[in-house]
């Protein structure tokens, strides 16, 4: 089962350095919109999401221009010539892990040649490589269901 990047919700503090390092390493600009990893906040939990290298990836199956293919190691390859940036993959990805570059092509995590820069720089060691079965060990569902506030 392919391992992908995920955040331990008890460790991730939402600082966003993962998005900045990713966009700089891949695109030469500090810009969360160009990041292959996305930081989100659900309730009181901070979660970082990247491609999970699904076994039957809907983005590949449903790509209208056949621009996406999956390599043997699970990584999704984007053919920039074929991709027109329609965003269908963004819509069908169940994890919200795909972005569209302003130059109209999909950007998807490729684990930086097995040396993921975001994992290296994460200041709280929250980013980890896990597979789908291990995932639930790192999600704190209680935090996700909480919000700030309440009545006195």
């Amino acid at each position: 089962m392919a391992k992908f990047i995920f955040s331990d919700t008890m460790k991730c503090n939402g600082c966003g350095i993962c998005e900045l390092i990713c966009s700089w390493y891949k695109e030469g600009s500090f810009d969360p919109l160009l990041s292959r990893i996305k930081k989100t906040r659900l309730g009181l939990a901070n979660i970082a999401t990247a491609c999970r290298f699904c076994e039957e990836p809907p983005c590949v199956v449903q790509c209208p221009t056949k621009a996406l293919t999956q390599k043997d190691n699970g990584i999704i390859d984007v053919n920039k010539e074929k991709c027109d940036g329609c965003g269908w993959c963004v819509d069908v990805c169940p994890y919200g892990a795909i972005n569209i570059h302003p130059d109209r092509f999909a950007i998807i995590c490729d684990l930086c040649d097995n040396d993921p820069q975001c994992v290296n720089v994460c200041p709280t060691d929250a980013l980890i490589l896990v597979d789908q079965d291990e995932l639930s060990n790192y999600i704190n569902y209680d935090l996700i269901e909480r919000d700030l506030g309440g009545d006195v």
């Binding site: 503090n13 939402g14 600082c15 966003g16 009181l44």
Partner: peptide
Amino acid sequence: KLKKESFQQFPISFSTLYQVDGITT
């Protein structure tokens, strides 16, 4: 104490959330 919390550009957390009687602050 519930958890330490941070925000954009802060690798170190300076805020802590507390909870009591359904209140989180």
